[in-house]
Design a protein around this nucleic acid. Structure first.
Lengths: 344, 344
DNA sequence: AAGGCATATGGGAGCGCTCCCACCTCGATG
DNA sequence: CATCGAGGTGGGAGCGCTCCCATATGCCTT
């Protein structure tokens, strides 16, 4: 007796069981569960009571099998460049995405792609259409994923874009504008020899920040000097090395714009190491206005971009695209804002 | 013609189609796909070729319907306390979990629980058994989720534990030991009036850190002084306020152990504000050895706990529990390590 | 009073898969 | 040479649901 009781972990009731209990047909129960309006008040009440009594919960697999919807979307984060934990960008994206998704009935699948092998796995997964849509952040120029998404006609929204002629939907911050504001700010502080440490230029956002830097200088009629441009990779180490390079090439520089806060933190280290005072000798500006910006010594002036908001908007675009797959691009650009602190 | 070609997005081939093409029965194809050994080499070759030619990918929903496995696990993060982005702990857990999951065929569902309403949703989700297992971090004393997991007999592993008599499987760091090491270190530096800012004590890890602090003092025969204990909540602000409180109550204190780096960063602010030098006047030690520890001024001495490893081990335990649901607890404690920097 | 229409309802068919059982081959055995 | 079992194989049944069509019900129109 006790054996029998413990063996089957309380088989879940089915639609059919609910129908029987409520004294209606399967169709009616299905209609109630899915919120159809074409059900009489009486039938609805009976069904709802039966559902409550039985503790009925729909079986998603069965539903999915017939509707071929999965009620899940994937957030894909290529982790090739930065570690999740050191790059606050990803955490904020996740927060925004999750928050916006909470009101829908969609589940969030998190997929970190570390290497070729894992990308392969993801491709198979997407080909199997195991999700209704995909959010993809930190896209590289030659990333094969966006193309795959287009080919599969899978609803997708990018965080960032591959180029200015992006064919997929995307949401991103006004990187060029933000960089421009940063450099103008440095100019307004009387700085003239302004260097920059870029991010990986195969990410359009990084390229746009470099372009913004150049624009601002050009507007101010400051002659271009490629010796003032060092290439980083968004990491702290990259920032440190980029800064050292700049100092070696142009010892007289009096300001630097870094394409990320993490790199700016690295730059601060290199400057300290070289005995330069910040901001007296060299002013520093970062990008992202992440947690680190407030904790460096001195705290960083930085370009704030609304990352969490980016995640939210990505979801909103994706939901629309899923609702009506008439794939028309939805491309959103969010404004940035300069936050001035002691480093400039 | 062109219309017809564009309408159906290339209906995916089914098991049946593969079987027809390979000239075998459905059963054989299923056996090949699922790696059964009871298939002749010839049949296997034929099936594999057909799969390749047709680009067949199994339909997970159909499979799930009959096996009632979902091939997905959920990582549940209650976001009530800290924001994902300011708390590097979560990012590292995610990284570890995702890495360890990559080799299995399980998908990672990320569920951030912000409020009662979302917890409700999660409960329904779990009741529907939409995942094969659950990873739950940052458990509170009175969190109803662990109980639900036990009731549902859903494989689950906690990051941390509810109490010392935890009945579920868990993985966590040796919090008490880490705190003890931190305080001993301060004692060895000649500090005697050592305060602490605790985390939320309904999290066992935070309580254990406080206990470790007390143990170390007791061992050294330092009389207990409740005036040296302030309560925080793991946030920077909490650390700042806790430190202010301590300074007000015990102006003569010469060291403080904070239960998280973020709180230590806040404490540094309060100390600066009060004109105390670190470490000359007051030594500071944090916990976690997160990114912020390296960026504060001065950089923080901190207790390193292997967070990513925690995530990995949680997954390993969960996989075992899923494989053989004979629910026997697997409880792992990981060592911590003191990292000494300039703040002490 | 008969017909017409909108609204509700029941239930068959079928989604793509795994499970399992019946069957079919062969080589080994008595 | 009949018998047996092990290894392979085909395919029926059925997982729980939605879709859709046939049918029923009630009320308004002429």
């Amino acid at each position: 007796m006790s054996r029998a009781a413990q063996q089957p972990p309380a088989a879940r009731p089915t639609l059919e069981a609910v129908a029987a209990r409520a004294g209606v047909g399967r169709g009616t129960v299905s209609r109630v569960v899915n919120g159809s309006s074409k059900v009489s008040a009486k039938a609805r009440a009976a069904v709802e009571q039966a559902i409550a009594e039985l503790g009925y919960v729909p079986n998603q697999a069965a539903r999915s099998l017939v509707t071929s919807r999965t009620d899940a979307v994937a957030l894909v984060i290529p982790e090739s460049v930065a570690k999740l934990s050191s790059e606050p960008y990803f955490s904020d994206i996740i927060t925004g995405v999750s928050a916006e998704l909470a009101d829908s009935d969609l589940q969030l699948l998190l997929v970190l792609v570390r290497d070729e092998h894992e990308r392969e796995r993801l491709s198979r997964y997407l080909t199997a259409r195991r999700v209704d849509g995909v959010l993809l952040v930190s896209v590289h120029q030659d990333d094969p994923l966006p193309e795959l998404l287009e080919r599969l006609e899978l609803p997708a929204v990018l965080g960032g874009r591959r180029s200015e002629r992006e064919t997929l939907s995307y949401v991103h911050a006004d990187n060029a504008g933000g960089a421009r504001a940063a450099v103008r700010h440095l100019l307004s502080r009387g700085r003239t020899a302004i260097g920059t440490v870029t991010g990986p230029l195969d990410i359009e956002g990084a390229a746009a920040r470099l372009a913004g830097y150049r624009q601002a200088l050009a507007e101010a009629a400051v002659p271009a000097d490629e010796g003032l441009v060092a290439h980083g990779d968004f990491t702290e180490r990259g920032g440190r090395e980029g800064m050292r390079e700049l100092l070696a090439r142009r010892p007289g520089l009096d300001a630097v714009f870094c394409a990320s806060d993490l790199m700016a933190a690295g730059a601060l280290q290199a400057l300290r190491e070289a005995g330069r005072r910040v901001p007296q000798d060299v002013a520093v500006v970062g990008f992202d206005d992440s947690v680190v910006a407030r904790h460096t010594e001195p705290p960083l002036t930085s370009v704030r971009q609304p990352i969490e908001e980016t995640g939210r908007l990505m979801v909103r675009s994706l939901l629309k695209e899923i609702a009506q797959p008439g794939r028309f691009r939805r491309q959103t650009v969010l404004p940035t804002e300069l936050v001035v602190r002691e480093s400039s």
